[in-house]
Computed example of a mutant assay.
Amino acid sequence: MAPSNNRAELDRLLQTRNEHPEKAAEIDAAIHRAFSQTHAVLVLDMSGFSRLTVRYGIIHFLAMMHRLHIIALPLINQHQGKLIKQEADNLFAVFPTVALAVEAAVDLLKTLAAVNTGLPDSLDLFASIGIGYGEVLMVEDSDMYGSEMNLASKLGEDLARSGEILLTEAAFTQIDPVDPASDRWEELEFSVSGLQLMTHKRLWQGSRDRF
């Protein structure tokens, strides 16, 4: 039996909503019942997509994306996460908690740095990561939609520099600020597309900039 949160069911409900706007509230409630889940959302962006593709060609880039996927998947699973999808040079994953997502992000960046020490410069892998937390509409385990996912994508793809981890404000509220073992964070504010975004950057030991 197909899960109730499959693509066909979402398309059916959205079509009904378009045809019967007077039933929008009822249909929205049905969509939330079937598709709504709460997760920490991690979006990883591989740095240098355009530069790598122009310099070495698309096959070289695809091979690097394949290597990144092979490295990332076991680390995501190790921290109780689930890889939802891969789009171009981005990986989208969900975790039960923000703490687990941050742990996975740290391990991912550290592992990439370690792998790079044994590779020629043309094969080095670099990434930036955004993390959000909140409700998403999950379509089976292959796609998702939601404000916090969009914000995490904006942080990972556009605002974080290579080797940086940025959290949305909602994600940061899930971090225990009094835990003596917790990470150190720097508050940053960005203005993007008319929106003021308050974000939090993880500070690496011995550096206030990046990993």
Score class of each variant (00 low, 15 high):
residue 1 M to E: 10
residue 2 A to C: 07
residue 5 N to D: 12
residue 7 R to Y: 12
residue 11 D to F: 13
residue 22 E to A: 10
residue 24 A to P: 06
residue 25 A to T: 11
residue 27 I to S: 02
residue 28 D to G: 03
residue 33 R to W: 02
residue 36 S to F: 04
residue 37 Q to N: 07
residue 37 Q to A: 11
residue 41 V to W: 00
residue 41 V to I: 15
residue 43 V to W: 03
residue 46 M to R: 04
residue 48 G to S: 04
residue 49 F to L: 06
residue 50 S to K: 03
residue 53 T to F: 01
residue 56 Y to C: 00
residue 60 H to D: 04
residue 61 F to S: 11
residue 67 R to I: 00
residue 68 L to T: 07
residue 77 N to G: 12
residue 81 G to Y: 09
residue 83 L to M: 11
residue 83 L to R: 04
residue 87 E to N: 10
residue 88 A to S: 14
residue 88 A to W: 06
residue 90 N to I: 01
residue 96 P to S: 05
residue 97 T to E: 03
residue 99 A to G: 09
residue 100 L to E: 14
residue 105 A to C: 00
residue 111 T to E: 09
residue 112 L to S: 00
residue 118 G to T: 11
residue 118 G to C: 10
residue 121 D to V: 13
residue 125 L to T: 05
residue 133 Y to V: 01
residue 135 E to P: 01
residue 155 L to F: 12
residue 159 L to P: 04
residue 164 E to K: 07
residue 171 A to H: 05
residue 172 F to A: 03
residue 173 T to A: 14
residue 174 Q to N: 05
residue 177 P to E: 04
residue 179 D to C: 08
residue 180 P to D: 00
residue 180 P to Y: 02
residue 180 P to Q: 01
residue 180 P to I: 00
residue 183 D to I: 03
residue 184 R to F: 05
residue 184 R to S: 09
residue 186 E to C: 12
residue 188 L to K: 14
residue 188 L to C: 07
residue 191 S to G: 03
residue 194 G to K: 09
residue 195 L to I: 08
residue 195 L to A: 11
residue 197 L to V: 12
residue 200 H to P: 08
